[in-house]
């Protein structure tokens, strides 16, 4: 899923300063699962903003809507009947959703209430960690299911670097060293000889470095 963090409250309040009718938009997909921008978080943030603005003597009217998805036109279009009742949209969807809604309603600003952070998993209840960077050229078959591009702080292909200690990364002692995990896998699977193979340089052109990416399936186009 796409994992996001809510922006600091002061930053949100600052963005909302000129407005008194706000549509607070959530999303039922990834940001719901990572408890950042689902209907529940929309309700809490709406309440928090109302309390703050009431205290400041500048009350606001907030519409609370959570779309099934913010990254699909059919759901985004469902905002049409009422989006113009509001001066501005504050979105708790990921960066994709924020932009996509903005593209559909060009006379309304869509402000971000979250910082979109990574593609990750629910490691345990309330804990999400990163797994993928969408580099466009997967090598998980070579690194036995652990992605060094994402999970090594230096994206090293022939690790571990000299900062790996006790299975932890030098950058943060709470982060497992990706290459330590990979070496563990080599050992478990009796494949240590494979470790000696030098991994070739990566072709980054499939990654963001090659420019914005696009996928087309002609057979599905209407």
């Amino acid at each position: 899923m796409i994992v996001a963090n809510r922006k600091p409250f002061e930053e949100i309040i600052e963005m909302l300063k000129p407005y008194s009718k706000i549509l607070l938009l959530g999303c039922n997909e990834c940001v719901t699962v990572c408890a950042t921008g689902g209907s529940k978080e929309v309700a809490v943030l709406a309440s928090e903003i109302r309390l703050y603005r009431q205290k400041e003597g500048k009350p606001v009217e907030i519409g609370e809507v959570t779309l099934e998805r913010n990254c699909d036109p059919e759901y985004v279009e469902s905002l049409k009947p009422f989006i113009h009742d509001y001066e501005v949209v504050l979105s708790m969807a990921c960066g994709c959703g924020i932009q996509f809604v903005g593209e559909h309603y060009r006379d309304r600003l869509v402000l971000p209430a979250v910082n979109t952070t990574f593609y990750g998993v629910t490691e345990e209840h309330g804990v999400w960690t990163e797994r993928c960077q969408g580099c466009g050229n997967c090598i998980l078959h070579k690194t036995l299911g652990i992605c060094p591009v994402t999970r090594c702080a230096k994206s090293i292909f022939n690790g571990p670097c000299g900062g790996s200690q006790g299975g932890k990364c030098e950058v943060d002692r709470d982060i497992p060293c990706a290459w330590h995990l990979i070496v563990d896998r080599y050992r478990e699977l009796n494949m240590m000889d494979k470790y000696l193979e030098i991994q070739p340089m990566k072709d980054w052109s499939t990654s963001r470095d090659g420019g914005p990416r696009k996928r087309v399936r002609e057979d599905l186009k209407i």
Binding site: F9, E10, V44, E48, I49, L51, Y52, K55, E56
Partner: peptide, 8 residues
């Protein structure tokens, strides 16, 4: 934490 943030 939330109530501190919004000044209540």
């Amino acid at each position: 934490h939330i109530l501190d943030e919004c000044g209540v």
